[in-house]
Design a protein around this nucleic acid. Structure first.
Length: 358
DNA sequence: AGTATTTGACCTAT
DNA sequence: ATAGGTCAAATACT
């Protein structure tokens, strides 16, 4: 995601434009009765009024689509170039004389993955940094860590400051620890407090809903349930997730990057969620599902979208991550998703139960 | 000296 | 061709 001169992202500019447009709408709406009362409520005035409305709607729609496009990681747009003064070089250093073995590139498909947002990168495991990389469109580089306790442990972690709030880190856990014979201290009770996560697993229902998740106040360190010790195997990551910071947390999924237009995506609210939880999924003309901002109040609270398995990691960029606020424990859910029109994949993600208002 | 981090090169997927 | 992930020598730190 591109950043403006003052550190603002393109997305923030769009959101600002949307707000300004809505304010203009409101001003015009207030002005209409005045104009009408001036005795010139002619057909011409009505026509111009409707034209203004249409233009405003078009502006709003365009901005919404632009924002959704940014948030969803469009395939047909190029990421912004690196900012001046920002290093565009890759991380790494040193010579190599020995032939390297095949690189295990971790992709969305087939990788176990968990994305976490929190204020600190500390967890109970020991990690050894082995690389750092500038990520296209991201303001901050991504750091790569391996398990530092056992070199044979495949667990890895990626850490990246979020564009929206550099004080928050996006942690991506890959692969499960195999060094857990010697469990680290405090390895239990990770609290899915403020978090964003999407992963497709075969976890049991009990695993998906860690116990005691609601018992810790949001003022505590942000963590996620099932942190770095991921159960295996983890077949596929695919899902969309949105969380709202308002009283109602909305959850839905999206398949906009899955080629098959027939891919069904669940947008239902599971029975586990309270009745006041709503789900919303808007369709775009190509019949793929996409998120569009809701009201101007809501759109500012769109937190994160984790798209389909066809997406590269760069498309997992969080939006407005600084506004992540959970209002209750997560509820894991599964649904079937036909990707590429062939394979049927089980998808897991979670919604958030809104905190009941007193 | 041992450990941890940095970072250019290299590799693979897209 | 490019972006992202990893390797591993060089360097910094303890």
């Amino acid at each position: 995601m591109g950043a403006g001169p003052g550190g603002a992202t393109t997305e923030q500019f769009i959101v600002a434009a949307q707000k300004a447009t809505n304010q203009l709408k409101a001003l015009l709406a207030n002005a209409k009765p005045l104009l009408a009362s001036e005795g010139d409520a002619s057909a011409g005035a009505q026509r111009s009024g409707s034209a203004v409305d249409a233009l405003l709607s078009e502006i709003t729609d365009s901005l919404s689509q632009a924002l959704a496009s940014l948030q969803l990681g469009p395939l047909d747009t190029q990421p912004p170039p690196a900012q001046p003064g920002q290093s565009s070089t890759c991380g790494g250093g040193g010579r190599r004389s020995t032939p390297r073995r095949s690189c295990q590139r971790v992709r969305m498909d087939g990788a176990c993955r968990m994305i976490v947002l929190q204020n600190e990168s500390q967890d109970s495991y020991k990690w050894r940094k082995y690389g750092q990389k500038e990520i296209l469109g991201a303001r901050f580089p991504r750091s790569y860590f391996k398990c530092g306790r056992n070199s044979s442990c495949p667990a890895r972690k990626q850490v990246q400051q979020t564009d929206a709030d550099p004080s928050k880190l996006e942690l991506t856990y890959l692969e499960a620890h195999t060094c857990d014979d010697d469990p680290p201290p405090q390895s239990s009770h990770f609290v899915p407090d403020t978090m964003v996560s999407s992963s497709s697993t075969q976890w049991s229902a009990a695993q998906r809903v860690p116990t005691g998740v609601a018992a810790v106040s949001s003022a505590q360190q942000h963590h996620i349930g099932q942190p770095s010790s991921l159960p295996m195997p983890m077949p596929m990551i695919t899902a969309g997730l949105m969380m709202m910071a308002g009283s109602n947390v909305r959850r839905t999924t999206c398949d906009h990057l899955v080629p098959s237009p027939s891919a069904p995506v669940a947008a239902a609210v599971p029975a586990a969620l309270p009745s006041n939880t709503t789900a919303k999924c808007d369709h775009v003309p190509d019949d793929h599902m996409a998120f569009t901002p809701w009201t101007e109040e809501e759109q500012a609270e769109v937190l994160l979208f984790i798209p389909s398995p066809a997406c590269s990691q760069s498309e997992l960029l969080p939006t407005e991550v600084a506004k992540v606020e959970l209002h209750g424990p997560p509820v894991w859910m599964d649904h079937d998703l036909a990707c590429d029109g062939n394979d049927q994949n089980t998808v897991s993600d979670f919604a958030v139960v809104p905190k009941l208002q007193n």
